[in-house]
Design a protein around this nucleic acid. Structure first.
Lengths: 132, 132, 132, 132
DNA sequence: GTGGTCTAGACCACC
DNA sequence: GTGGTCTAGACCACG
């Protein structure tokens, strides 16, 4: 598991954790039944307060992605993968739609928005490729 | 001027107002020298707290998009259009890049992201076309 | 609203708050659209830390009983009453069944359990009547 | 001995073990002087951590229900039966009262609580009858 | 004023 | 060791 937390993301830290864990489950990086690192370990690794990680765990429990095993740790729920795939889809779809919506409403033509998207995609791919 | 405010947008209401006014100036819907409606009128129209509109005005002054004319109201600055065109570009670019970035980091392939984008674009166009 | 919090209840404080608010909505003591007291006020009244109340609010949001109105407070969701009536039913049913189950499994005859229940009911009614 | 452990009971596993052993002694299923299975065997049978069983044994010793016989195991104390009958009474009474109390405080009428109880009783009897 | 987030540190029960 | 709860206090954005 390799998480990147950006405190200035607009999104709360705990929510970034939630998303990234859901993405990891959706990708199969985390498989149902597997135990995730302890709250304390995650907190240390991400350089955030354990309570902040705990807040994310609360949400992931409510979303039935993780379940606590008393005294042992947090495990990925059976059936979480399907759930997370759907969540990823909707999280990203919602964000993409909002973004496109704003672009169009700003007066840009669809073609112009598409150009910007392609440029953003190239930039992101380059950054990702370069980062590896 | 036709603004759409969405309280559950993630973006603060005042920031949505700032963006939409900048977009309107960029588009030429608002032209330099033109007066914009009073804070009270805007607040009533958008169904938000006058303080919220005030907060947006404050930002727009700082960005030199609007200037207060004593006793008369707020006017679009001369030269604001160029400024707003640049702002629009960077605001949208930044948001697009962040969105694409998250999509890629979630594990989706670029091609898959492009599909989602195209679908979002269609949806948004349909909504825009239908709404008019 | 008149809440009774018992720190030694076995149930976490935040969960007692959740239950009592759900019960109040179910009873119609809190009606949809109504604002509930602020987190700080509730905390002061219940003599607990504001964060503890906040934890309850998180849960109530997740359960779609309350919704935050930015900068204004927490409001009872439309449709929350039906939800809360169902919740109350299932919360109490689950607890009653578990209790009865344990009693039967302890070897007591059904008739004997019923006697104990009736005595408990009388006791509780007397306590409630006396308390008023 | 036939124990049913439910990890999601709210009650700690070790406490469920304590209760069920006390109930068994109260019922005469376990008689004074009788040896109970070893911690290891019980742990395997109940599918729980041996430490958890150990924690229960510790409590049962403190309550003078079991006594360790050096090198041989744990035996039911002489006179434990009377103790356990009283314990069962008070454990169940306390739990029933707390349950009824919450039901009444939620706003339900006594008659309504009685109906729920009767339904719970039927359900539990059916489950017990069906399970045998 | 409101809710929301985060940190720090303590304590608990459980396995 | 684990997760869960609670307190205390700070800071932020929003209206």
């Amino acid at each position: 598991m390799q998480f990147r937390i950006d405190p200035d993301n607009g999104l709360a830290i705990w929510e970034q954790i939630v998303r990234q864990i859901k993405y990891a489950v959706a990708e199969g990086v985390l498989v149902p039944g597997e135990m995730i690192p302890s709250v304390r370990d995650l907190a240390r690794e991400l350089m955030v307060n354990p309570n902040t990680v705990q807040r994310a765990m609360q949400q992931l429990q409510a979303d039935e992605v993780l379940e606590p095993l008393r005294g042992r740790g947090m495990a990925v729920c059976t059936g979480a993968r399907k759930q997370c795939l759907a969540d990823r889809q909707s999280l990203l779809r919602q964000r993409l739609e909002a973004t496109v919506d704003e672009a169009l409403q700003s007066g840009l033509a669809a073609e112009r928005v598409r150009e910007m998207f392609e440029r953003a995609l190239e930039t992101a791919l380059r950054r990702k490729g370069g980062g590896e």
